[in-house]
């Protein structure tokens, strides 16, 4: 009997819990907060999490493969800053874009190489590369914290673009979600990511190219970060590199983990990202309407993240006998 109850409890997984919580908060906010259910507010909610959601899509690819990419925010801000700096310095569009893309690819490849072939834990590789990317670009390549988009650039047009009153980044988020969903669900390499995340050694033994795929994931997450950075620059008309020191990185992890993508890899998908993004978006919006200061919002968000991790730990407990040595 107990086993049955326990089984039911397990069935009631994190994603569903979060979904229910999200709906509850949504319902409560709709009733008690004035203007919450207005159409433009709902659009604002989705818009506010679009960039975060795109970053979380990239992050989830890495996490499902039992990794983590802590360099995403640095890559996002610094690659776009580099791109805009080159444009402001008079470089042509093509060369600037090629250089920025090359930079992003190089960082992704470096991350992937160190994780896959040098066997260095992903958290340290990406922590170090994030710090390096920020420091290098900030100290060597750009002069100020914020770099503006040059006048008349296509990014400005993109930022103002609306289709049926809905900003363009929402569509981009939607399209990217579908693409990642299709990739994970229907392509061979997409399925392989789950196998590699679930049991890397077994995946390797069955002949899956685990190491090249690891590199690919870090390249993909770096490219996603670049895309998110372009969108940020489009809507804000500049990129502020101080975002690297903000809590954005933790928000990305929060969206992924709270949606139910296990940090131990092998499980999760686009749906979890969407659920996580919805919860965060609604919560942030509600807190903003309630006029809670940013520093309190940070406290609340991080506390929620802690609970998400605790629940994750309870649902996917580590076994003393099978836990990997040095798996921190």
């Amino acid at each position: 009997m107990a086993a049955k109850v326990f089984g039911d409890l397990r069935n009631f997984n994190q994603e569903r819990i979060v979904l229910v919580v999200t709906l509850l908060i949504f319902a409560t906010s709709s009733i008690f907060l004035p203007g919450f259910v207005a159409a433009d507010n709902l659009v604002a909610i989705v818009r506010s999490v679009s960039v975060l959601g795109i970053l979380a899509l990239g992050m989830s690819l890495v996490i499902i493969g039992r990794g983590i990419d802590l360099s995403m925010v640095a890559v996002m801000a610094m690659s776009v800053a580099l791109y805009l700096q080159l444009l402001n310095g008079g470089q042509s569009e093509g060369i600037a874009l090629a250089l920025a893309l090359g930079f992003v690819l190089a960082i992704g490849l470096l991350n992937g190489f160190l994780v896959a072939y040098a066997d260095v834990p992903a958290i340290f590789v990406t922590l170090a590369s994030g710090s390096f990317v920020f420091g290098y670009v900030r100290s060597q390549l750009i002069d100020t914290d914020a770099v503006t988009v040059p006048a008349g650039h296509w990014l400005l047009g993109l930022g103002g673009l609306r289709i049926a009153e809905v900003p363009i980044e929402v569509y981009i988020f939607a399209v990217l979600s579908v693409v990642v969903f299709l990739f994970l669900r229907f392509t061979k390499w997409g399925r392989y990511i789950f196998f590699a995340g679930d049991n890397p050694a077994a995946a390797r033994n069955t002949g899956i190219p685990v190491r090249p795929m690891l590199v690919l994931r870090y390249v993909l997450s770096a490219l996603t970060a670049f895309a998110a950075g372009l969108l940020t620059a489009a809507s804000l008309q500049s990129i502020n590199t101080r975002v690297v020191n903000s809590n954005l990185l933790y928000d990305i992890v929060l969206v992924a983990v709270i949606g139910g993508i296990g940090l131990s890899g092998g499980k999760g998908g686009v749906r979890n990202v969407l659920v996580g993004a919805a919860l965060i978006g609604i919560m942030l919006n509600a807190m903003t309407i309630l006029d809670i200061p940013l520093i309190y919002q940070n406290l609340i968000k991080s506390t929620i993240l802690l609970f998400a991790i605790i629940v994750d730990g309870l649902i996917n407990p580590r076994d003393e006998q099978t836990a990997q040595q040095g798996d921190i």
Binding site: L114, D119, S129, F132, Y136
Partner: peptide, 27 residues
């Protein structure tokens, strides 16, 4: 007198090199 960001750059490089050397040496 090096500017903003140099610290992070150097720390990042130090960390990456040290961790990689450590892992390879141990292996």
């Amino acid at each position: 007198g090096y500017g903003t960001g140099t610290n992070q750059m150097v720390l990042g490089m130090l960390l990456a090199v040290a961790v990689t050397v450590d892992i390879r040496w141990l292996k």
